[in-house]
């Protein structure tokens, strides 16, 4: 079985935002919305400080509350567990936006709800998502969790990692290497 996942190496990410802009270009993301964004988490007090740096996007949860909440099934799982919105079936009720614990969805001006799709159109052609492709620090890796040769599989075996809001039991597929 294929299970697509992405790892974000917090040690390498410098929050340069190349991924944010590459995604905007690739997916024609409307102005004011972002499919991915970067976060800096500052801990401690001067001079004992630490900074977490990462990019975030849709977590493509295995147990996605947005899929559960969608009345027409527009929000659904595609190959490899990628969560995608079918624009034709979407009625704009925004139940999925409300249901998402990570606030990754936005309303597209053309009347449907949109979000990161792990660049499924690229994945189907054997390419990595646009963010992974552009990342100058190689902080982003993408692949099949169930394939032992994939980078994500190996990263998760060898590195300590975490997910966001594990208490929501969404079982995200976006892992942060710490």
């Amino acid at each position: 079985m294929t299970r697509y996942a992405m790892t974000v190496d917090q040690k390498l990410c410098v929050t340069c935002n190349a991924c944010v802009i590459a995604c905007k270009n690739e997916n024609q993301v409307p102005e004011g919305a972002a499919r991915c964004w970067t976060v800096q988490v500052e801990k401690g007090s001067f001079p004992l400080l630490s900074l977490e740096t990462r990019s975030e996007r849709c977590n493509h949860c295995e147990n996605a509350p947005c899929v559960t909440a969608c009345p027409t099934g527009a929000s659904h799982y595609e190959d490899g567990g990628i969560v995608v919105v079918n624009p034709d079936k979407c009625v704009g009720c925004k139940a999925c936006i409300v249901a998402c614990p990570y606030e990754v969805r936005y309303m597209h001006p053309e009347g449907y709800v949109d979000k990161c799709t792990f660049c499924i159109h690229r994945v189907r052609e054997g390419l990595a998502p646009a963010c992974v492709t552009v990342c100058p620090t190689k902080a982003l890796k993408f692949g099949d969790l169930d394939d032992p040769r994939s980078e994500v599989h190996q990263e998760l075996q060898t590195r300590q990692h975490k997910v966001l809001k594990p208490e929501e039991d969404t079982r995200p597929r976006l892992f942060f290497l710490t």
Binding site: A18, I21, N25, V134, C135, P136
Partner: peptide, 21 residues
Amino acid sequence: YKLEGNPKHPLSNGKLCPRGT
């Protein structure tokens, strides 16, 4: 509609910074 790093160019190696993108 899109700008990507030229993989053949030794300075970009297929990657671009946010401004270039």
